[in-house]
Amino acid sequence: MKILVCISNVPDTTTKIKFAEGNTSIDTTGIQWVINPWDELSLTRALELKDDATSGVKSVTVVHVGTASSEPTIRKALAIGADDAIRVNAESSDAWFVAAQIAEVAKKEQFDIIICGIESSDFNGSAVGGMISEFLGIPSVSAVSSLKIENGQPVMTREIDGGKEVVNVQAPFVAIVQKGIAKEPRIAAMRGIMMARTKPVKLMEPLAIEPLTQIIEFEKPTPRAACKYIDADNPAQLIDLLQNEAKVI
């Protein structure tokens, strides 16, 4: 079995977001770029499956749509343990564009399981995984918190409102994963970092696809009013404020 893990390159999640060019883009000065947290967990789970000889997983490839500037992110994925990488050499303009590129890669290379994080922490689009599956005409299972392979059969758990479901599906399929898929992201060891330097990164030129969406402006969230402090000796006052001022209870 071959696994493809889709990775996105995002600002470190503690970054203070600033805008540039008249609020039409993000000021990238000083931003530390990391693998999208959910994609890092996806990669970790894929590698855990590969480590387990009974799973039948033979290789883990990562794919990324981005320019040469995201090369460090790809190397990091290789250092963590991916066997090889594919970079589609293009600016990732929107989910439609990215998904179409990755679907094309998947058509050429034939994977059994494609894993995507449920969203990226930058555009919060939650769309790429589902779009890839529809471009390929294969099943997708979303909000997956556990992915196992039992006797050659993929078994997933997905989160639903108020509970969870165990879902069976035949490969090939797209798993769109969330928290729980792996406990902690795997960290690159020194040996991995050394090995990553010589692992293959295949460069592919993008298909000519028109994005369907475009961000024209960013704005900051509306600032909240300053906190009103209530004396710790008189918490009943809080209940009064919630009832009569905020009117939420």
Partner: peptide, 24 residues
């Protein structure tokens, strides 16, 4: 909805209808 079900369906629908998605 932008919940788990919506996130599961919307992108597939997007490809079927060639419709851009504004999520969240």
């Amino acid at each position: 909805s932008n919940n788990n079900t919506g996130k599961a369906i919307a992108p597939r629908l997007s490809v079927r209808l060639k419709a851009g998605v504004g999520s969240g």
